[in-house]
Amino acid sequence: MTEVSMTVNGKAARASVPDNTLLVDFLREHLRLTGTHVGCDTSQCGACVVHVNGRAVKSCTTLAASAEGAEVTTIEGLANGELHPMQAAFKENHGLQCGFCTPGMIMSATDMVARYQAAGKELTEEAIRHELEGNICRCTGYHNIVRAIQDGAAKMAAG
């Protein structure tokens, strides 16, 4: 067992967990933050994407112990009283159907917007499609997801 402590969505979280506990299992099973999903379990689908120290990572491919001392943000940590602009954009642009991939899509989307803003680069439609390489959606065909991210990026820049 390993004692892990980290900050999740601004709150201190601490637990004693088996050493082989994945970050996604720590979030879902120990903290009951079930918004982060496990889709493929083979590190390809991106349903489990969360932010660790401000960067998008696949929480199914990260040990909880490796995130010791980290600042973790999950989909539950984005909304602040009202929906995050990216969440609102997904709702308004019909960027989801079944919704299973959506938490990972939104966490990847906010990460890419932040990175492109920091680098002063334009987040074009082509760039969004390229950036979504690690997030798989089996319903939408991606078009409305891409539109939602374009809209969400504009909302984040304005807000």
Partner: peptide, 9 residues
Amino acid sequence: IGDPAVRHQ
């Protein structure tokens, strides 16, 4: 290499 989340780690 991989995708953005993979490249972060």
